[in-house]
Amino acid sequence: MRRLPVNLLIGGVLVALVVAAAMLSVIWTPHPYAAMDIPNKFAPPSPAHWLGTDQLGRDLVSQLMVAAGNSMMVALLAVSIGAVLGTILGMVAAARGGWTEEAIMRLSDLGFAFPTLLFAIMLAAAFGPSLTVVVVAIAFINIPTFARVARAAARQVWHRDYVYAARAAGMNRFAISRDHILPNIAAPVIVQATIEFAVAILTEAALSYLGLGAQPPAPSWGRMLSEAQTLMYLAPQLAIWPGLCIFIAVLGFGLLGDGLRDLSDPRLGQRRSHD
């Protein structure tokens, strides 16, 4: 019965827009995204090329759509891996306590202190730049974030009476984590994942901008930006459109995450149950 938070609504619409474009790009784009048409370079917007073409005459809309797909895929993979590993670590820390918890949390502090960029550059130096490197780098830095969120939430649930009741029943820590802890910490973890998704899109764009991520001809918003940089005065629209896409996607997921958090805020819940 509660009104949906405004940020959830706006975020949802923006995210739906980006996701729809990305999914559509799999089966259809106005033009093949890599098709060059050099005589037609820097074309202005027209019925054939809605946003015009770039310095090689490639259709901008098609590139942006495929790039959206790449961004989504990288963010989805990286955040999922980070969330799963981080949540498991956080739950183990909360369940075992003692030195295990101490070790996991100190290690995750260490992970927090490690700059993503530096880590990605090291990976790229070792394995060559690719989207895989980007995924691994983003996933890695996400682990401590989720470990911390999961542990904080799990510790609270471990002190609920129904967990004591499960312990009194003779349930072991693994079964309790599976039956009670995980379902009851899912909300904060999902909220965090949505927010991290926005950060991941931005990070992917940054890494690709630096040439550590998507390699030509695979389009990426970040790489499109970096290529457009030298042409800023000649064709500023080439930088504006991918920039706007990044802005919309990050804003969309950020708002969605905030909205979900508002929705699952315990204080709102309390107010609802108050008679």
Partner: peptide, 25 residues
């Protein structure tokens, strides 16, 4: 326990909660 609101997992059916000791044992 004291608080009957807190001693049952809100996400589980009553039957599931009552059967928990049976599963554990």
């Amino acid at each position: 326990f004291q608080d009957p609101n807190g001693s049952l997992d809100p996400r589980r059916t009553v039957g599931w909660s009552i059967a928990e000791p049976l599963r554990a044992q």
